[in-house]
């Protein structure tokens, strides 16, 4: 038990500058809403934490698993719809909708993973994309999901911890930070667990992994299933944060791409990568996008993204964390 807690909450295996950096990060997030009081600034921070959360989950398959999944938005959608529909239909308290959402997403991922992992590389990536697009078309097509009109969660008055509705963004800030930390510590445990090592071994060399007693196929399926469940967690938050969801908001291709990009830019396969990636891309998106939108110059923000993406792909596939790590290593030598 003591060992389990240590594995979850400590980073003894990481260098000291990382541990100090993480502490500073936590402090900044904790005091952030008291320093930045503008609604927009706070919204940026919340979106940053949301995408860091998404990134941590996607990192499981994309970073540790080395498989490019371009369909994570479907899992976000499952989570968001599970929460929204359960609240609208049966008035289920928010907290009880999280787990069903994650289970639905995980179950779908598990079912689809079975045929999916007969594929590799590009074939796999395109297949994930296709599956997510089919789900989105179905959610628009079906009536019971609200179709293209989406689902609206009725607004309550005052702060409500049962349905997680608040007037002040400060609540949402700490709420998403709490979810983020949950997932972060899960990932911290995961990367050191037997499963975590099996996933990385399979990524690096499938044949060698099998020779060490690892069931390659099962490892991939389990990993993909967990990734699906984690995607739904952020989706549930989106439902109560925006109070209105539709397939274009919670299941679009752009969301899948942005999640994957966050991790790639920050550094795939490292625990800090998704946080760094989200810290760069989300403010860039929100400030540059808003500023350019005001100038009626649509598209430049995404062009900047695209250039970052191409440069990372050509120069440093291990992302910004890869650059930092190399710099540090050089200095300590």
């Amino acid at each position: 038990m003591g060992q389990l807690l240590t594995d979850i909450f400590f980073f003894n295996d990481r260098p000291r500058f990382e541990r100090v950096g993480f502490l500073i990060f936590i402090l900044i997030i904790l005091i952030f809403p008291w320093i930045v009081t503008s609604a927009y600034g706070r919204a940026v921070a919340i979106k940053f934490l949301l995408f860091a959360l998404f990134g941590l989950g996607w990192n499981l398959i994309g970073g540790y698993g080395g498989q490019v999944d371009l369909g994570q938005a479907k899992n976000v959608g499952f989570g968001a719809y599970a929460t929204a529909l359960m609240i609208v239909w049966w008035k289920v308290p928010f907290w009880l909708t999280i787990i069903p959402g994650m289970i639905i997403a995980a179950a779908e991922s598990f079912a689809i993973a079975y045929p999916m992992f007969r594929l590799k590389g590009h074939y796999f990536a395109i297949a994930t994309l296709c599956v997510a697009l089919v789900w989105k078309e179905l959610f628009i097509f079906w009536d019971w999901t609200g179709g293209a009109r989406g689902v609206e969660i009725p607004i309550r008055s005052g702060a409500d911890f049962v349905y997680m509705q608040f007037n002040s963004p400060i609540y949402y800030h700490y709420f998403i930070f709490f979810l983020f930390l949950l997932q972060f510590f899960f990932m911290n445990w995961f990367r050191k667990s037997k499963l975590g090592y099996a996933v990385q071994a399979v990524r690096d060399n499938e044949e060698a992994a099998a020779s060490l007693g690892i069931n390659v196929y099962r490892t991939k399926v389990v990993n993909y299933t967990i990734t699906g469940g984690l995607g739904a967690l952020g989706g549930s938050f989106m439902a109560v944060y925006y109070l209105y969801i539709d397939p274009d908001a919670v299941m679009p291709l752009d969301l899948s791409i942005l999640i994957a990009m966050t991790v790639m830019v920050g550094g795939a396969g490292s625990i800090w990568g998704p946080i760094i990636g989200a810290a760069i891309l989300i403010p860039l998106d929100m400030y540059l996008g808003a500023w350019l939108g005001a100038q009626k110059r649509l598209g430049i923000d995404f062009m900047v993204y695209a250039v970052i993406m191409m440069v990372i792909a050509a120069k440093e596939p291990r992302g910004i964390w890869g650059i930092i790590e190399r710099k540090i290593k050089k200095e300590t030598r």
């Binding site: 037997k194 071994a201 690096d204 060399n205 044949e207 992994a209 396969g269």
Partner: peptide
């Protein structure tokens, strides 16, 4: 066929995980 992104110790650990669940 050594796993290139894992340290030497981790490579061997993965072998040892064949017989145990404890890190």
């Amino acid at each position: 066929k050594i796993m290139p992104n894992l340290t030497v110790e981790e490579n061997v650990m993965i072998g040892a995980f064949c017989r145990t669940n404890e890190r």
